[in-house]
Design a binder for these strands. Sequence first.
DNA 1: TCCGGTCATGGAACCGCTTCCAAAGGGTTG
DNA 2: CAACCCTTTGGAAGCGGTTCCATGACCGGA
Lengths: 329, 329
Amino acid sequence: MTATIYDVAQRAGVGIATVSRALRGSGSVRPETRERILRAAEELHFTPSRLGVSLAQGRHAANGIVFPNLSAPYYAEVLLGYEEVTSELGRSVIILSAGGRGVTPEQVRDLAGRVDGLVVHGRTVPADLLAELVDGGLPTVLLAGAPVAGADLLTTENTGSARLLAEHLLGHGLRRLAFLGGPSGGPDVDERWSAVAAALAAAGAPPPRPAPLTEYGVAAARRAALDLLAGPDRPEALVCAHDEVALGALAAARELGLDVPGDLAVTGWDDIMAAEHSWPPLTTVRQPLRLLGATAARALDELVSGARAEPGHRILPTELVLRSSCGCR
Amino acid sequence: MTATIYDVAQRAGVGIATVSRALRGSGSVRPETRERILRAAEELHFTPSRLGVSLAQGRHAANGIVFPNLSAPYYAEVLLGYEEVTSELGRSVIILSAGGRGVTPEQVRDLAGRVDGLVVHGRTVPADLLAELVDGGLPTVLLAGAPVAGADLLTTENTGSARLLAEHLLGHGLRRLAFLGGPSGGPDVDERWSAVAAALAAAGAPPPRPAPLTEYGVAAARRAALDLLAGPDRPEALVCAHDEVALGALAAARELGLDVPGDLAVTGWDDIMAAEHSWPPLTTVRQPLRLLGATAARALDELVSGARAEPGHRILPTELVLRSSCGCR
DNA sequence: TCCGGTCATGGAACCGCTTCCAAAGGGTTG
DNA sequence: CAACCCTTTGGAAGCGGTTCCATGACCGGA
């Protein structure tokens, strides 16, 4: 089928070792010989088999990433940053998305067997399986999950920004808050919930009303918000677990004829693109999504290349973004 | 480091051939022998090396996809559908994103060497390189691009929906249209442009005003829309090349104090998530994005598995989605 | 002129698996 | 009892590279 190194060697009248040297520039090859080999390779459209190279070198030159769901802009953006850097480092990116159905251990193991290192989004892979891979020597970076011994951890700041957000809402005179999507929306969401609750308590405001979600997505959030807002004792502000939840809340408010922020303040988290273009524009907390992916890629590369041996924990800063859904302007 | 098939064979006291048979269920193995092998494999945490398997089988069990940019919701959604199906078919997904900077021929060749088949988004890969790969026997599906001999082509319907859209706007009494993002926004966008122009001509309306964009993204579209709308002879309706352009147009209109749809109608294309949640909600043409990715994955699988030899061209239907940015309601 | 050293090169081992082929052992049938 | 077949098994040949090591040619210095 396609040409192998043997074909090139034969055509150039040399051994395969010399072809390898000439093509990858290792070892010394006489200029004329090199020339002859290059020409032969050219004529045969020779491209070294990735499998052969990888097998011989013992490395894949590929990194993997596992995440829950691509339809969430959050993950798309993180993946973008990850792909960009990984690609820059000369490695391929293999993805595995849970997509609602979840990933199977076989899928994860298969992925692990194709890469030199892995980035895993929190809660997509069971902790014991993760531990097994890490113990097996696979360089691993955890993104926004619970720590696992031997793996890098990369998270974003939650508590401080959540407190700022809560205090900002209190500053608008809002005291009766509900937290849509929490608690139990994952470690990150729960951290935000706790910080909001603490800020309210500190200000002597009533504790936030919990409003957990069972499903992901704007539509599910909208339904939950409809229930919450149409029910008794409507909150003055809806702090949402993330922007998509907030978009659902905005839709619900609109349907109920509630003015945002006049009748109800709404806030998100993440600052996805749609947050800026919603109506009203969403007050939210910006996560450096692209940077998150890029940083994960760099951290993983350090582990894979051996530049760093000890796993660490890095926390990227977040930033309160004030638009009008909270009552500003 | 990690156990190989030799280790398992030795521990079980058999040859590697028997281990291979026992583990993959091919050939016949005496039950007790099989049992012994399975136990040995278990004890050694043996996982067959993907490289070894692939090299021996001559297949990667992986498919690739090349696309322009993940930050556009359009591609994220297509990738989602693609990953879902490909994963279901038991194959890994390797991605390569141009991300503004464009893909290099080396990157594409490297990717091609890692997969059994490739899905390529139009215009991300130069036609000659694409032809080289296809000629080299790589099963390829083109997504929304210009046809390449030997490759599958998968597109979405443009002309009919664009005509419907234009006629709908005419039905609102709008006649002076501008087309933001065209012509020369790629084959798809140009098809839409032509169909809109034809519909206007058929109705005796003036031809659409061209307003090409040089850059991708909401921000660039907003700037272009500001220029266009603040300039003389403001159009009554802005037909946008896709939803992100339309979101930029909406932002521009808001800044200029123009009421949409009162002073200006705006339409998009694609029906990304943000289109429904913008203000006003965007009238647009829905592309079955997820289905597009899923269909590409299935088509590619047919080519890879040999179920189909001849390349074909499939066109997925689109659908006009009326919201309020066009003047409806 | 002889010798140690450098350069260029090829043979062969190796990476980890699948699978063809040969062979051994046991059972069945004529 | 012999011929034959089927089951079970192992050896070995790939798959396509990289790289260690040995070899030979050529060079300059003693």
